[in-house]
Design a binder for these strands. Sequence first.
DNA 1: GATTAATAGTGTATTGCACACACAGTTCAT
DNA 2: ATGAACTGTGTGTGCAATACACTATTAATC
Lengths: 241, 241
Amino acid sequence: MTENDPKLPPGLALAWGVTPGPRRGPKPAHTVDDVVRAGIEVADADGFGAVSMPRIARHLGLTPNALYRYVRSRDELLVLLADTAWGPPPDSVAKTGNWREAMTVWTHAFLDRLGVHPWLLDVPVRGAPSTPNLLGWAEVFLDGVADSGLSAADALGAAMLLDNYARGTAALDRDLRQQAPPLAQPEVLEFLLPRMAERGLPVMASVYGGGGYDDAELPDADVEFGLNRILDGIQALVDRT
Amino acid sequence: MTENDPKLPPGLALAWGVTPGPRRGPKPAHTVDDVVRAGIEVADADGFGAVSMPRIARHLGLTPNALYRYVRSRDELLVLLADTAWGPPPDSVAKTGNWREAMTVWTHAFLDRLGVHPWLLDVPVRGAPSTPNLLGWAEVFLDGVADSGLSAADALGAAMLLDNYARGTAALDRDLRQQAPPLAQPEVLEFLLPRMAERGLPVMASVYGGGGYDDAELPDADVEFGLNRILDGIQALVDRT
DNA sequence: GATTAATAGTGTATTGCACACACAGTTCAT
DNA sequence: ATGAACTGTGTGTGCAATACACTATTAATC
């Protein structure tokens, strides 16, 4: 059983490795870790949509309901999946010399993880981090930017800003990559351009019609553009302090 | 039937009001617009999770499958729902005097819409905007920031950045507001703090333990903080040009 | 005006999901 | 040795998207 403190939010206890002592009944054929591993394998293979209890159970050679012996609910499992898939924060952030480099490295590491497990974007976020690895990512961020002189509140604001930016960017990239985006087919522009002109959308029409606009991919340069804007903005704040 | 050009992405034709000419069979009891309106009502009332074909059909007094006479798939319907719920872009952006004010007004208007229809955050984004209202929002943005002297690419980058920021912020706000976030209960901190200390997370431990940190709400000040950082960053770019 | 082809909505079926509950077999504490 | 606690199975509920066959209706055509 997973009950330790029924008042704790789902997954918290398990994420911190709090497991009840020796049990009485038959030995479980697997561990919570096995279940989490299986879940990650399923998600990596077929995306978040495939992360269902029956699917994971099949992967382990179990019937669907057996999973509820390891985990109280699907929600609880998702918390564990997220923490495990994010993994520990990178050391590299601590080794940087200054806050700006730390933020850059942190954000790139964050994006890398999302490249490895794109489905992490689909795991609902409940609130502030409360599981070990997620807290670890926050910790190395705050640690790395200590030399900026930012207040704790401002540093946290910067972390939220970059977290948010990385997630959005990664989501966009993934969406463009997998499902053929609207503008990929020439028929679409053919359909769209005259109607846009008619409806008074000249600027966007020239952007789409100009040829230089590609919908099918998010270039690295665009990612860097946004990141540099944000860092410049933080820079202005740091300079002011 | 909705087929006009089967090669167009789902919903595109309908979103632009392209409907096939007069039909032969019985008169439809409703219009595509009715279906969309019903969908929005359902979503407003019970969230994106409630937007199912049976649910919308019931709202219209139809059997679930009847909807497929108006719309090719649920996906197509979602495209229409999103464009209609966003609605036309605000006039206010065009009336601003300079790019910075325009971006500020645009972002706040964007956030306002997400306040009205929070489920818009859950509608999957397929790629670059291709429906009339969404294109309109992009248009007024580019129009409003023309005086910045930014290149079209940079202005688009700024639009993406702010769009992304607003979405992330609104999502966070909504999540914190509805489902009780982890740190809301005192037992959680009681559980967490000793373990954080043990695991080498002193900075986050002092943030959570310091008392000033509230998980239950996203203050307006935090929203403005991020927005001002981004605008400062764009400012730096504008100044450089 | 009669015929015919296209169409709207219904009913039924398939498949898949989360989860509740009762049960059979297993293992440890007493 | 006995019984309580436990693991995994089977069965059932209620919901979803969507396919398919069918009936009733209507407009274009003869």
